[in-house]
């Protein structure tokens, strides 16, 4: 992708597949979304398929999909755990993910039983070039 280099929030951790996860405290559910880089590559997001509340998901496995007008990408879970909440607002209006990928555009919350290969903001910035 050409375009301006995105700035990635330092408090988040990232996957090489362009998800972010906010683990505030390992005992509490973490919040997962997709990065500005992913959003820029996809274009306007028009449909999201997210895991069900109560689903057990594994780190690095496909747990949903993100459809834009131009393409579709699979959504990978950054951690293993149980889904405790999905963001109904983005299901109803996927454009929120385009406008606010790190805040209102979060996708789901999951308990953290084990983490996958997570990257710091700096490491992720290196991956995305």
């Amino acid at each position: 992708m050409a375009g301006p280099t995105a700035q990635f929030p330092e408090n988040l951790q990232y996957t090489a597949e362009h998800e972010w996860i906010d683990i505030v405290d390992p005992q509490s559910p973490a919040t997962v979304g997709i990065t500005a880089t992913a959003v820029e590559a996809l274009g306007d997001i028009v449909y999201l398929e997210l895991p069900e509340v109560g689903a057990t998901i594994g780190a690095g496995t496909v747990v949903g999909e993100v459809e834009s007008t131009k393409s579709v990408s699979e959504l990978y879970s950054p951690v293993s755990g149980t889904v405790v909440e999905v963001n109904q607002a983005v299901i109803d209006d996927p454009a929120i993910v385009n406008s606010s990928p790190y805040t209102d555009g979060w996708l789901f919350r999951v308990t953290v039983e084990a983490t996958g290969d997570l990257l710091s903001a700096e490491e992720y910035a290196a991956v995305t070039g």
Partner: peptide, 21 residues
């Protein structure tokens, strides 16, 4: 501020702001 993409051997604008807009 276009996002560029390869197409037919050329580097072309994929979108400027929003595909839908």
């Amino acid at each position: 501020g276009a996002s560029l993409t390869g197409f037919g051997g050329w580097l072309m604008p994929l979108r400027y702001t929003s595909d839908l807009a």
